[in-house]
Each structure stands twice: as structure tokens, then as C-alpha cells.
Amino acid sequence: MKSFRRHPATINAGSMADIAFLLLIFFLVTTTISADKGILRQLPKDCPTKDCSKPIHERNILRINANRHQEILIEDKVVTLEEVKELVKSFVDNNGASQCDYCMGKKLSESSDHPREAVISLSHDALTKYQLFIAIQDEITKAFYELRANYIKQTFNKKPEEITDEEFKIVKNAYPFIVSEVLVKRD
């Protein structure tokens, strides 16, 4: 009589690698990966003015500094975040040279000659908190937005969202957004 030997049961795992590979591809294709959100800022061109070699008069530069102690200094005077917008507006709209017919400034001798020549120099320390730096940028942007909105109201008698692209070019020429950002490195 024949003896029956039982062989241990085996599982065919040859297609197991194929199945794992297909599952991997399925999950890679169907999974959504959240993208990091950034700041909607357009980087400045290499030279925002027509003549970049032309020296800028000292009174046309407003120096804003955020230091490592999270203090905001404008022209070496400590100010609050809430004051930044009004100080930028008064600096840009100063009309120190009395050549701007749309400016409402006080014509101070220590502030800018004309909005087209006003430069905001924003510098920060390496230990400045990111939130403070962005908050200062926002205040500068608000100042320019308000100046431009007033100009639009005076010149075109419209709201900012109602102007055309050609009118917006005129507004940008009247109040150009010239900001220089610098990281101050300390040893």
C-alpha cells in the first residue's frame, strides 16, 4: 500500500509584491498633500527706478528697523506698530520740494521731497520674530493703500476696485511702492 505523505501547506507569495506595489501607487495617486501657504508678495525687479545709479538724497529715505528685542525703530526712535502706518503716510506724502500738486503733506524739511522719490528702508535683525517683520510690512502696505485710495478718490472720483488697468498705472506712478528690505547681520 502506498503511504501518503503530507506536505506542509505553502502559500504562493509570488504576486504579493505586485499587490503591495499596486497599493502603494494607489495611495500615492489618491492622497492629497497639503502645500505650504506663503505670502502673496511679488518680488521687486532688479532696478525699480529708471536710473539706479542715481544717488538718493538722505531725506528721501525712511529707515525702519526691527531689532532683536522686538522693538520697532523709525529713524532711531522707538515706535509702536500702530504708529508705523501714519508715519509712513506722512513721510511719503510730505511734498518737501513743493512739486507735488496732489500731495497733502506738511512740507517738512526732514521728510521726502516727492512720493516718487520716497524710499522705505526696512531692516531687521536675525533674531527678529517673523510675525513682527510681516506686521511691519503689512502696516507699510496699508499706508500705501490709503495714499493710493485717496489719490483715486481725488483724481478719478472712484473707489479703488472700480479703476481700470490704465488708471492703476497712473496711480502706481503717483505713489510707487519702493521698499528696500535688508537683513542686518551682527557678529
Rank of each mutant, 00 (worst) to 15 (best):
176 P>W: 00
19 I>N: 13
29 V>E: 12
52 C>Q: 05
9 A>P: 09
157 N>G: 13
96 G>V: 00
146 E>K: 07
98 S>F: 13
186 R>S: 14
58 E>F: 06
72 I>K: 02
39 I>G: 02
150 N>R: 13
137 Q>F: 10
30 T>Q: 14
117 E>G: 00
139 E>N: 07
76 D>H: 13
109 S>G: 07
53 S>R: 09
43 L>V: 11
63 R>Y: 11
56 I>T: 08
175 Y>W: 02
35 A>W: 14
88 V>F: 03
49 T>C: 11
146 E>C: 00
109 S>K: 14
11 I>Y: 11
91 F>L: 00
18 D>H: 08
23 L>D: 06
112 S>P: 03
129 K>Q: 07
130 Y>A: 15
135 A>K: 10
68 R>Q: 12
11 I>T: 09
107 K>M: 13
147 L>K: 07
21 F>A: 12
142 K>L: 02
158 K>C: 02
181 E>N: 08
126 A>E: 14
98 S>W: 09
75 E>Y: 05
43 L>S: 14
12 N>V: 07
52 C>E: 01
177 F>W: 08
108 L>G: 14
18 D>Y: 13
38 G>C: 06
89 K>S: 03
79 V>I: 06
51 D>R: 00
55 P>N: 11
164 T>E: 08
88 V>P: 00
75 E>F: 05
102 Y>C: 06
105 G>Q: 01
164 T>D: 05
166 E>Y: 05
22 L>A: 14
104 M>F: 14
23 L>E: 12
141 T>N: 08
63 R>Q: 13
4 F>V: 14
121 S>T: 02
26 F>D: 08
108 L>C: 15
185 K>S: 15
169 K>W: 09
20 A>K: 11
135 A>L: 05
95 N>K: 04
172 K>C: 11
25 I>T: 15
100 C>Y: 01
181 E>P: 06
94 N>D: 03
37 K>D: 08
35 A>I: 12
97 A>V: 08
2 K>S: 13
44 P>T: 00
156 F>I: 04
24 L>M: 14
144 F>V: 01
95 N>V: 05
36 D>M: 12
23 L>H: 09
96 G>H: 00
71 E>Y: 10
142 K>Q: 02
35 A>L: 15
66 A>D: 08
